[in-house]
Design a protein around this nucleic acid. Sequence first.
DNA 1: CGAAAACTCGAGTGGTCGCTCGAGTTTTGG
DNA 2: CCAAAACTCGAGCGACCACTCGAGTTTTCG
Lengths: 220, 220
Amino acid sequence: MSTKEGPQTSRRGPYAKSAERRRAILTAAHAVFAAHGYRGSSLQDVANLAGMSQTSLLHYFPSKSDLLLAVLNWRDSITGDGTAPPDPEESLSDAVLRQARFNEDVPGVLELYTVLCGEAVTEGHPGRDYFTQRFERLRRSYARQLAQLAGEGRLRPGVDPDTAAASLIALWDGIQTQWLLAPGSVDMAGCLRAYLDLVLVPEENPERASAGALPLAPLG
Amino acid sequence: MSTKEGPQTSRRGPYAKSAERRRAILTAAHAVFAAHGYRGSSLQDVANLAGMSQTSLLHYFPSKSDLLLAVLNWRDSITGDGTAPPDPEESLSDAVLRQARFNEDVPGVLELYTVLCGEAVTEGHPGRDYFTQRFERLRRSYARQLAQLAGEGRLRPGVDPDTAAASLIALWDGIQTQWLLAPGSVDMAGCLRAYLDLVLVPEENPERASAGALPLAPLG
DNA sequence: CGAAAACTCGAGTGGTCGCTCGAGTTTTGG
DNA sequence: CCAAAACTCGAGCGACCACTCGAGTTTTCG
């Protein structure tokens, strides 16, 4: 691939500290965007928090929209994009509830997604494609998982996997907004658990004979 | 409107066309805020769409945040704030689904609420209190209606009215976001109906057989 | 070492922002 | 009719915006 045989293309690599510098910028931008949104934030704010000049920041991310997309993709690369379950043995319910409870304790993540997702619906927002594709991906992923559960008889009769997938994502996002505005008045994990209890059939006890159910952690 | 007996308070009333002028500003501001959000909009944009100078606009609404709050309250005064059912005979399901279907055909309303609600979570946003109080009010209203249904045995056993109220609002908001980003991929009314069918027990009226109601096992 | 790329940043660009000022015009109410 | 309030708006204020330029410094690598 990239040998040095190029006679004139003598491009050197970045400095040793460059990666760390980029991470400092992304961390700062994450916090600033989460607190004020994309349009409410300035590159100067991010640069100040990152401890460098605005010009230096622009050396690493050539424009504000580039910085936004970098933050979004960076976040996904760390926490995952919600598509791939880290543990294939973990049930859908457990994965959702674990993630929901985890998010409560990591300030900024929920703010970033909620604030930017709302902003992204506006005309010409640089994050619009990101969120559109993210929702599409999530809907497909959950629909697939729910369809598999339906095949195992674990989905309540009459529940459509596609509808339930979109509804689960919508419920999750919506309850996050309410929680951010009034953390004491809303129980995020409780709402999600209540919905999953409605949609999923509880695991069959061994005494009740029916289609073979896979062992799963109790929901109640 | 007030009497003119004030001896020193010789303040005159507004011109005849003032009310119409204010309405033109609110209409323009509604459209601009819905398309670009609060921070993404400028008073100049609103003034241009309303057909007047930015200075004249500021004569009616002394600041940008005043304009935002006026738009939000104006919207509520027209369509209602979702608390008061216009027809006391209409069921909760019918009211929700009718409103959901109605919103699909009135562009701008959903954009305004979704965009501003996301923005409102940011620090120092002038609409934050509005949305916080709106959610509180809506949760109380739905919880009360659901509790009454529970008393009539119309709520599925195991469903908590408070949780279901917050969940219904969250689902509604979240599905709106998805619909705005991909109108063809999401069925707003369908998702809401599916949720209500899960939460509510079909009416006992033998003549009125709900097509969407399916036999569901009680929760264990 | 030494040259050139990687990096840093003060200074500046043109633009837009919300909002003020003051002076002129229109309408109202007595 | 007529003062004064309601309205209109061009001009301008200081602040901030994303982004550019150019010149200096640091690091890499042959």
